[in-house]
Simulated assay, not measured.
Amino acid sequence: MDTNNKQSFSKVPRRKLVDEVLEQLQHKIFSGKYQVGDQLPTEPQLMEELGVGRSTLREAVKILVHANILEVKQGKGTRIKSLNFTEDSFEARLKNADIDHINEARKMLDLQVAILAANRRTEEDLLKMKGHLDKRKKELEKGNYAEYINADIQFHLSIAEASKNIVLLDLYQSFVPILRQTLSQLILKSMDYKDNSLIHERIFMAILNQDVEKVKEYAIQNVELK
């Protein structure tokens, strides 16, 4: 399909550029003019049409890649991978499962690893958690959504690691692809995205203080806010 007929992006004003670029790219992709397999305009073309720099554009594209909408291949450009927020690939059963079932499983898993982490965490575990928590907040403030999502996932994995239960850690790692996709889609659907940093900070403090009852409360709240 000829991409020259699809160049109708407007210049992005100076505010949260990544949000604006995501919004415009989604509008264009789902406008009905693209089909699965079609190539997007080249990176220089998109930068010119959107009036943004390379880093801003690439950040937006990363989110769309994580959401399974775009696919980037070196030397071949960026193409439309899917026009749905689902995929038929590795862990398809989990990714295509009912969202309520996924949240039920996550609630049980998050709760159990957090309880164990509160009882078993070491100083090294706490340092890892705090490092990921600080990075999560910093990347969100900068609008680096892909890095924000990665730091969020690493924070939860560090809690699972602190549980000292290798089976639960492996189970949590199996959720990473769906967590990354779900968070990416949440950002795409919420252009005025606000996260639940306060709950994450409370989870950390409860684990630090080995307050199991608070850990239970905040771990459940975190999943229910997704």
Results as ranks from 00 to 15, higher is better:
Q221F: 10
N4Y: 14
A92S: 14
K189M: 14
Q112S: 13
N5L: 14
V12Q: 02
N4H: 13
N84Q: 12
E224K: 14
A160R: 01
Q112C: 06
T56A: 09
K130E: 15
F9Y: 15
N68F: 07
N150T: 12
S8W: 15
E49F: 09
V223I: 12
V215D: 02
L70G: 02
A160F: 04
K62C: 03
F204G: 01
S89E: 12
D192G: 05
I207A: 05
K226H: 10
F204E: 02
R93Y: 12
Y145V: 07
G32E: 07
T122F: 04
D134A: 13
Y172C: 01
Q154H: 12
Q45R: 07
K76M: 11
I153N: 09
G53I: 00
L133T: 06
I115T: 00
I166Y: 03
R180D: 05
M47R: 12
L17T: 09
A162W: 00
I99K: 13
Q7P: 00
S82F: 08
E224S: 14
L83A: 01
Y34N: 01
P44L: 01
K194M: 05
A117M: 01
R93H: 09
Y193L: 07
N84L: 09
V113Q: 00
T3H: 08
L179I: 10
I159R: 02
I149W: 06
N196T: 12
T3N: 05
S174H: 12
L157I: 11
L186T: 11
L83F: 06
E224P: 05
A162P: 05
I178N: 02
H156R: 10
I115S: 00
E49V: 05
K135V: 05
F9R: 06
E201S: 09
N103D: 13
V12A: 01
K216P: 05
V18G: 00
L40I: 08
N84M: 10
T122L: 06
P13C: 01
L183N: 06
K73M: 07
Q173K: 15
L186M: 11
N96Y: 04
A97H: 12
K76Q: 14
N150G: 07
E104F: 10
R54F: 06
L127F: 07
L64Q: 11
D38K: 00
D211M: 04
V61M: 06
S190Y: 02
T122P: 02
A92E: 14
V215A: 03
Y145W: 12
Q154C: 09
L40Y: 03
H200C: 03
L116A: 03
K214D: 09
F30E: 01
K11C: 04
R54T: 03
V215C: 05
S163P: 01
R79F: 15
E124R: 06
R14P: 04
E147Q: 15
E71I: 14
G77I: 02
E23L: 10
N150F: 09
D170M: 08
N4M: 13
T122K: 00
Q26D: 11
K76Y: 13
L186Y: 09
D19F: 09
E20S: 09
Y34W: 01
F175G: 01
V36G: 08
K28A: 08
L17R: 11
N196W: 04
Q221K: 15
N196Q: 13
Q210E: 14
Y148S: 03
L225Y: 14
K95E: 14
D125K: 01
H200M: 13
M1I: 14
A97M: 15
K138N: 07
N5R: 13
